[in-house]
């Protein structure tokens, strides 16, 4: 495809606001400022290999994986319901699902705080029933809840759009050939919906693994995630080099996971078509 002049503004934009900043991050992560000037070093990456930082990385990835899995388990059936023929008012359902996203993400997370706290709605209801109040806010579960709640639409919408485009004739053909409902689901629907599932997983995993607001608000600052660590380096310590090094590691983790996902996607596409 030939590039025409219309694409140049975009190229310039990407160069200025994506490529150059990335180069700067890379530059900061491998340099150190000494008395004589700037010298190259790998010390920031070495520092990241210390157990405390690896523990933070491990926790971030763990929480993000759990949330992604929960989103998938909740989101796939939801997408099937939305894409199915059960509802005449399908558009309204999709609309209702998207409306909360119009509200700011911070406000929605704050709302969860008032629901979960000791004197909050849930505990008030529990004590009204005569049950003892639970410690809900400021736990790891609360952080996962916040992630699942905030990122669920990113899982549902791609799967929904793939599912609703599946050719109904394929399903009918499978049924004509004697497949029961479960076999149709397993052999036809799942393979065909995989691209949606994969983009859903990446779209949930990426923000979940880098979030720092959710862990601060719902985790009460007790669960330092990689995002918090990066924020701390830039805003509090002023150690831009270490912060950049962590960001580079983070990008590597995300690239790696996208790579694994897309490889998996290709293999399955082949299987699905055969």
């Amino acid at each position: 495809m030939k590039r025409n002049w219309l694409s140049y503004p975009y190229l310039l934009w990407m160069l200025l606001f994506i490529f150059l900043p990335l180069l700067l991050v890379l530059f900061y992560s491998i340099t150190v400022r000494t008395e004589e000037g700037i010298s190259f070093t790998m010390e920031h990456f070495r520092r990241f290999l210390e157990p405390i930082y690896l523990r933070v990385l491990f926790r971030s990835v763990k929480l993000a994986l759990i949330s992604t899995l929960l989103c998938l388990l909740l989101g796939y059936p939801m997408a099937m319901i939305l894409a199915g023929n059960h509802f005449k008012q399908k558009n309204i359902m999709v609309f209702l699902f998207v409306v909360p996203m119009w509200m700011n993400f911070l406000l929605r997370t704050y709302a969860w705080m008032t629901l979960l706290e000791k004197t909050g709605l849930i505990n008030t209801f529990l004590s009204w029933l005569g049950l003892s109040p639970l410690n809900l806010l400021y736990t790891e579960e609360a952080v996962i809840l916040g992630m699942v709640y905030n990122f669920l639409p990113f899982m549902v919408l791609p799967i929904y759009s793939v599912l609703s485009k599946i050719d109904k004739n394929l399903i009918e053909a499978a049924e004509d050939l004697g497949a029961d409902g479960f076999t149709v689901f397993r052999k036809v629907i799942i393979p065909l919906s995989l691209p949606g599932v994969i983009s859903g997983i990446t779209m949930v995993f990426m923000p979940a693994v880098t979030t720092f607001v959710i862990s601060r608000l719902l985790g009460g600052g007790q669960f330092t995630l990689i995002g918090n660590l990066i924020e701390q380096q830039f805003l509090l310590v002023g150690d831009w080099s270490f912060g950049s090094a962590i960001s580079m590691v983070m990008m590597a983790v995300i690239l790696l996971s996208i790579g694994v996902m897309s490889k998996y996607e290709k293999e399955n596409e082949g299987g699905g078509l055969l």
Binding site: I52, L229, Q232, Q233, V237, D239
Partner: peptide
């Protein structure tokens, strides 16, 4: 020296 405080704090929080 703030870096030392930062490391201590990260160790507490992590």
């Amino acid at each position: 020296y703030l870096k030392v405080y930062d490391r201590i704090w990260t160790e507490v929080k992590a």
